[in-house]
Design a protein around this nucleic acid. Sequence first.
DNA 1: AATATATAAAGATATTTTTCTTTATTCTCA
DNA 2: TGAGAATAAAGAAAAATATCTTTATATATT
Lengths: 220, 220
Amino acid sequence: MESLTITTPKKQQAVPEPTVRRMPQYLHLVRALREKGDMYVSAPVIARMLGLDPTQVVKDMAYTGVSGKTRIGFSTEELQLALEDFLGYNRKHEAFLVGAGYLGSALIQYQGFREAGMKIVAAFDTDKRKFGTEIQGVPVFSLEKFRDLASRLHISIGIITTPAGAAQSVADLMVVWGIKAIWNFAPVALKVPDQIIVQDTHIYANLAVIINKLGQQKNS
Amino acid sequence: MESLTITTPKKQQAVPEPTVRRMPQYLHLVRALREKGDMYVSAPVIARMLGLDPTQVVKDMAYTGVSGKTRIGFSTEELQLALEDFLGYNRKHEAFLVGAGYLGSALIQYQGFREAGMKIVAAFDTDKRKFGTEIQGVPVFSLEKFRDLASRLHISIGIITTPAGAAQSVADLMVVWGIKAIWNFAPVALKVPDQIIVQDTHIYANLAVIINKLGQQKNS
DNA sequence: AATATATAAAGATATTTTTCTTTATTCTCA
DNA sequence: TGAGAATAAAGAAAAATATCTTTATATATT
């Protein structure tokens, strides 16, 4: 096997967000292809499999730093490594999760975050009955413990899966204790300092899109 | 209390998707304001609370059909009703969920879908041990039962929370039995006929954005 | 009653993202 | 060896979206 030098993208900056969002899809596909034994894959083929525009795939690939061979396509091995690098599957980010309800538990259980560059190391809740228990090996603590743990460990990501009412105060806590990015599942617009990264995953937004499209369809 | 006539939007079509995605946020906020007793709210105020551009809020509001009063703003009551109407909280959509794992259970448990216009009426799985059990009152059946139930009841939405490997075959099944929209949580690009609505909620995409931004921040 | 002000609404501009075009490369097949 | 075909890559155009600007209106204040 020849050595592979992954040229890092020219600039670490300014990758369009839609592109970033497509990257995990590419990785998933490329992994499947490699398992099948494919050595190469072309952008048009990827496009067809994922239902995307071929040139868009080419452009996205350019951000990974791999360059394809004309008439052959991209090396699947090279692509996989480059995508994993791009998505940060090497550097490990550790996360705290607050709100160990059903959604929180689901996220903890969700296999794959670990290999996706993030590890949930602890969960927090206000329900006394949950203190001291474990979810898939992840311990559940009282919110009081948050302070000590967060400052001792170097936690970069905070996940909020609490009810809407509690989300802002949890976010405030996370900011105080040095969290750099907040992944918010509560249907609330969080107010945090500018340098804090906030990523909202509003389940209802997706439902709204579905129901809106269903309504549209009926009218035509 | 005076009677309220909600003028339906001029055209039921072509509401920009980003607008649709913001609608649940508006509704959530307006409900909170009404509970607080506020009779009116202006677009700039909404914008400040949700961290949006004021004119964007005005434009979004226009799609609900309500018109505000200069210097006063929008009637919260009128807005709430219009938003609920827009989001289809009146017409009930019933849904089947396939994949009663942790994520699937979380969605079923998630309070609020019911009042958000969707009701999950049954769940399906391939794990025999789950057959006959209930999650929050929602029965879990074998996938074999899917056929009969789907044709008997009028189910418009199918939710896929299976592992990636099973997603496509589940989608095929859903198409056969007349599902109109699929809400897909598996990290797979589903192939379905054109008239079927597919809404992907790829958890990993959000994680990718977070980690990408974290990486960017470190480099500056 | 008149003026100043906050606001909705409509229009215009700018930005972002996607799609389309073109060019050049290189592999395959005759 | 040479022609044809599939592809990556770069550039241009188009579409969608967000932001900015202007105008008109209605309300509260003086």
